[in-house]
Design a binder for these strands. Structure first.
Lengths: 118, 118
DNA sequence: CGCTTCGGTCTCTAATGTAGACCAGGTCTC
DNA sequence: GAGACCTGGTCTACATTAGAGACCGAAGCG
C-alpha cells in the first residue's frame, strides 16, 4: 500500500483524486445520472475531466456506463457493487468535511496569522 | 459540498489528494514520524511534494510540526485530533484498496480487452 | 579539509488540468 | 429546406502543477 509499485497502491493512486471521489459521492447520493446531470452536480468539473474520471471509474469496475442509442444521445452512469462499496467509504469523508470545514478554516487563519511571510 | 465555491468543497479539494491521504494513513498507523521517515514510508513521494503536503496538513490544523533545534535538524510530524478524525476515515479506504485491488485489476483487464483501441 | 546527515529550497522540464471551440446527426422552428 | 438546438463527447491552446535533481547551512567525524 505504501510501496510505490504495489498493485493496491496503484489502484489507490488512480481513485484518490477529488473528481473521482465527488462523482462516487454524487452517484451514491443521487442514484444513476447522465453525463450532463453529473456535470451540473459536480460543480467546477470540466467535460474533459468528467469524461476522464468516468472512463477511469468504468475501467476499474466501479461504475457502469449505459448508452441509449437515441438522438440526442443519452448516457447513464451508475454505481456497480464494487463502486458502491468505495462510495460508502468515501461518503463519510464528505460528511466530515462539511462538519469540520469551519474548524479547518479557523486553523488556516491562525496559521496564516502566525506565518505572515509565507 | 458539490458547489465549487462552498467552503467545505474547498477544504475537501485541498485534502483529497493521494499524498495527503497516504501521509495521514501512515501517521495513524506508525505514530509520530520525522520527515525522512515519512519520505521512506510513503514510497515515491518527492521531498517537494512531501513538504508541500505536510505544510498543507499543518496549515489546516490536521498535523503538528515540531522542530528540535539540533544539528542535524530533527523535525517530527504528528496527528492533531482533527487530523486523527480524518485519518480514521481515510484508513478504511486504504484497507478497501488492499482488499479489492485484485478485483479492480481484473475489471481493468476485462475493460482493456473489450476496448482494444483506446 | 572534505564527506555525511537532515530538512528543506530552487530550478528546469514533463505531465496534467482548464477553458473553450468544434463535431455528429437527428429534431424543432421558421 | 435553412438554420438553431440538443447531447456527449473530442481537440486545441494555455496555465498550473508534479517530478527529478542540484544546492544549502551548520555541526560532526576522520
Amino acid at each position: 500500500m505504501f510501496a510505490r509499485l504495489c498493485p493496491s497502491r496503484e489502484v489507490f493512486a488512480e481513485l484518490a483524486d477529488k473528481w473521482s471521489m465527488l462523482i462516487l459521492m454524487d452517484l451514491l447520493a443521487c442514484g444513476p445520472q447522465r453525463f450532463s446531470e453529473l456535470q451540473r452536480a459536480v460543480g467546477g468539473v470540466s467535460r474533459k475531466m468528467l469524461t476522464q474520471s468516468l472512463r477511469n471509474l468504468e475501467r476499474n469496475g466501479l461504475v457502469l456506463r449505459t448508452v441509449f442509442p437515441e438522438t440526442p444521445p443519452r448516457v447513464v452512469y451508475d454505481l456497480l457493487p464494487l463502486g458502491r462499496e468505495l462510495a460508502e467509504l468515501v461518503d463519510p469523508i464528505g460528511r466530515w468535511t462539511e462538519r469540520r470545514a469551519e474548524r479547518v478554516m479557523a486553523a488556516r487563519e491562525e496559521f496564516d496569522a502566525a506565518h505572515p511571510g509565507g
